[in-house]
Design a protein around this nucleic acid. Structure first.
Lengths: 329, 329
DNA sequence: ACAGACGGCGGAACCGGTTCCATTTAAATC
DNA sequence: GATTTAAATGGAACCGGTTCCGCCGTCTGT
């Protein structure tokens, strides 16, 4: 591949002139034309490493993701990637397979790769995380979790869960099972539960039981079956769409019709929830936008711009068929 | 941040000596100790750009992927990433949003990032692809598509489709709609269709119609509705699980029971196909293994090992409820 | 007509490493 | 003790860009 020197030689100018052409300095029209022609002919591309060496401004952004095979993660990644590309950055993905220590490792390893900054699709933020951020002095943007010391983009879990809770109540449900996840996950495990609970607390006449499961569909199926057997609610409110899908399966295995015998709701807005039957009533988060926002925030940070510590990404309740309207009858 | 020169100065040696210490040349015990101490004290880390500028041994593997938000892609990526990590490589993902030119761009851009090699989750291979591979002289491994000049890992589409065809016939289906995709996609568009057709050709008494759609569920819904109205087959064989999901939806919209009124099969083995009702009979490809294999092949290639030009990844037919057993009755 | 200003350009230093080559130093051989 | 030989180290070139500096020529103002 050609270097800037080759181009300069072919154009009969100094390499500084070519560099100036590339970066927009003052150049006469004929020289500009000449260089332009040569560059087009040769398909020259500047060597990124040489550029970054002097400029000290790496253009790679590291993204740490707990898993690649999740709808939410891939949507967020897509958003990050698209926007980063527009801003002339590259995305380096590091997958941690949901192992927390690997997140820390990854921070250091990305630091080593000389990334300009890090976007972390976080699950929890520990002291070790903060230590890594401090030691590497890398700008960090969190997605999906909030921390008062780190820039964060979060889905508005609390408000969404509150709205969903209201919706459930409005439709006449009074015996409710909430199927959540570990409280270690602040956003999904705590915020959603709390938001939902806030809505419920505004009424006196309803009975709620809280359960906990993992993010896996299989586990959700088991626990849902158990809930149906022992508590027999009129609705199961699930903390994620995958869990809701599991609950749906459990209902079917038990021979319960959804929504007439049992209602179910999810969280996430995965495409599949609109395809299955019955369509799942869920909260749609704008994951791709969140990713976009994260990319934008990080780049702004890199250019010493101002960014709010916390950014909320939008949501909307998608009403489909999985919730029985007891008052509509 | 300290440079190698600073370290050299602090240790009272030349920077070449420090470089040698770092990369394992011959160094006396006392100097080694001295440098080691300084490096530990300062927490020195070599500048990756400067290294890659002159050097030779990048440890980043570029992966080009048409989209991140697909089950297959994320599984393959997971496989690649896991294995690469074991081999001490990093994965740099480049997303092309299904734009073909971007694949070419990405090859050059990855070359520019000085990746050691490229894994391409291919859709089609054009002359421009080959040109880019040649010009950059980067080792390339294809996943999902085959080419006689490039190392490839393919899912055994042909055999899988053949087996599935046999299965469909064995269950008594004789009026069959095959819902495929563009033939530009050799693996999914051509191989699957051909394999299926081979099975069908072994019988004289069946009626088959071939249709084409995109990879999107919405499109599949529309076309499936059309197929039902105009052709009214006993089964729709779909080239991907997403298409099958669309067909399922169409059947439901038309009020057709699956499988008694209409059978449906897919390709892929997405987890969701086992959760929905009725469970989708499909062909499960071992995507993660394929990714693993791709990573392994590329690294072997980098170390000048021998790798077969073509590797087949495994599959299995998953029998669920979406196919009516006409002979079982 | 001449001094000063300015646009366009080439030369060279520099970024932070690696590596080749020459030289010093120490160890080994006779 | 002198000579051979290998190990250890320093010096300098180099990778491919960017950027500072200064020279040259033309244009402008008086």
């Amino acid at each position: 591949m050609k270097t800037i020197g080759d181009i300069a030689q072919l154009a009969g100018v100094a390499k500084s002139t070519v560099s100036r052409y590339l970066n927009g300095g003052s150049i006469s029209e004929p020289t500009k034309k000449k260089i332009e022609r040569i560059i087009n002919e040769t398909g020259y591309m500047p060597n990124n490493f040489a550029q970054s060496l002097k400029a000290k401004k790496p253009n790679i952004i590291g993204t740490i993701v707990p898993r690649l095979d999740s709808f939410a993660a891939s949507q967020i990644l897509t958003g990050i990637d698209k926007h980063l590309r527009e801003l002339n950055y590259q995305m380096l993905i590091s997958n941690t397979s949901q192992e927390l220590e690997r997140e820390i490792e990854s921070v250091y390893s990305l630091y080593n790769q000389k990334v300009a900054g890090i976007i972390l699709l976080a699950t929890q933020i520990t002291k070790d995380h903060l230590k890594a951020f401090n030691e590497t002095e890398l700008p960090v943007v969190l997605v999906g979790q909030q921390h008062d010391k780190v820039y964060s983009i979060i889905h508005n879990d609390d408000a969404a869960a509150y709205d969903l809770g209201k919706y459930v109540l409005e439709n006449g449900h009074r015996k409710i099972a909430y199927l959540g996840v570990t409280e270690k996950d602040i956003a999904v495990g705590v915020r959603r539960k709390e938001g939902f609970n806030r809505a419920i607390s505004e009424r006196e006449d309803c009975e709620v039981e809280y359960y906990e499961t993992s993010f896996k569909m299989e586990d959700a199926i088991k626990i849902s079956s158990h809930i149906i057997e022992t508590f027999d609610p009129s609705i199961i409110v699930c903390a994620t769409d995958n869990i809701a899908l599991g609950a749906l399966k459990a209902a079917r295995l038990k021979g319960l019709d959804v929504p007439s015998a049992l209602s179910i709701t999810g969280f996430g807005g995965y495409e599949i929830t609109g395809i299955i039957h019955p369509g799942l009533t869920t909260v749609k988060f704008h994951y791709e936008d969140a990713g976009r926002l994260a990319a934008d925030s990080l780049v702004t940070l890199l250019n010493e711009g101002q960014v709010p510590l916390l950014n909320l990404s939008e949501y909307q309740i998608i009403e489909r068929e999985s919730v029985d309207k007891k008052f509509g009858r």
